[in-house]
Amino acid sequence: VANFVLFPCRYACMGCEITLPHTEKADHEEVCEFRLYSCPCPGTVCKWQGTMDAIMPHLTKMHEYITTIEGEDIIFLATSINLVGAYDWVMIQSCLGVRFMLVLQKQEDHNGGQQFFAVVQLLGTSKEAENFAYRLELKGNRRRLTWEATPLPIHEDIAKAIKNRDCLTFDANTALLFAENDDLSINVVITK
């Protein structure tokens, strides 16, 4: 009998209106966009979980070092990029009616080599993310390095994108070509 009955998603109380056979219920609930999301801050041990609407209030309250800037075309100026060790530079760009998390991450390998990764994540669903494109550009000294892609949706892990090199990737030597006084200027342009 259960095969003929449609069950509500476990996140129905959060707004999901989907009903489906019990055989498909678990698969749907794993990707349901009404489920709780983890804090998107990279490299932190924040255990917060909440709904999509609660993410931005959480970031401004609990991660107050994250600055928000308005505009589709902005300059993300990462300071002190030559510090030894692994670091994140994080900010929020608000434009086109939505918000994006901009992340520059520096990692060190076992040989002391440094890699930089820059990526943009929409604080929204994968369906919404498909409507946008972002461009990250390093410019200066008669050189230009550009990466263009669709922003990651909120449920995709930034760490996974970095692991897959699905982001702007460059090493410390390249960073030095574009840096001025230990500061790296990244032009971020978001389009619909």
């Binding site: 041990v45 300059i75 520096k106």
Partner: peptide
């Protein structure tokens, strides 16, 4: 034609916490 200068925001580095945990 005028060229709009994009707004610039200075972003300070944050210590990558996962690395700190690994060091403990």
């Amino acid at each position: 034609r005028t060229h709009r200068v994009p707004k610039e925001v200075r972003v300070e580095p944050q210590k990558f916490a996962e690395e700190l945990i690994h060091r403990l």
